[in-house]
Simulated scan of single mutants.
Amino acid sequence: MKGTRPPRTVIRRVDLIGLHKDHFVCFACRKQYRLRGSEGASARVWSASLGRFEHRSGKREDAACPQCGETLQALGHDFKAPARRDRRQWLKVELLWRFGCGYAMGWDGPGERPRRLSGAVEFLIRRGHSENEVRVALAELRARRRV
Rank of each mutant, 00 (worst) to 15 (best):
C101D: 05
I17W: 00
S42G: 02
H23P: 08
A104P: 07
H129Q: 02
G76C: 05
L50T: 01
I11A: 10
E122P: 03
F79M: 08
D108T: 07
R115Y: 02
G128F: 06
G119P: 09
I17F: 09
E122D: 14
C29D: 14
R44S: 10
C68Q: 13
R87M: 12
S57I: 11
K21N: 00
A120L: 10
P66A: 12
D86F: 15
A64C: 13
W97C: 07
A43P: 00
C65V: 11
A48T: 01
R84W: 12
E39Y: 00
G111R: 04
Q67K: 10
K59L: 11
V45F: 01
L124T: 02
F79L: 11
G58N: 10
R85G: 14
F79P: 03
D86R: 15
D78R: 05
G106Q: 06
G106L: 00
D78W: 01
R12Y: 00
W97Q: 09
E112Y: 10
T9D: 04
R34N: 02
P114V: 04
F123E: 03
D15Q: 14
S38K: 02
V25A: 00
A83F: 10
K80H: 12
R60E: 01
V14G: 05
A74W: 06
G69C: 13
L96N: 14
R30S: 05
H20M: 13
F53E: 14
W90P: 13
W97S: 10
C65L: 07
L117H: 06
G18I: 01
D22Q: 11
R34P: 00
V10N: 11
G76I: 02
W107G: 06
L124M: 03
K31H: 06
R60C: 04
M105Q: 08
G111A: 06
S38N: 03
R30L: 10
V10A: 05
R115H: 06
G58P: 01
A43G: 04
A81T: 10
I17L: 08
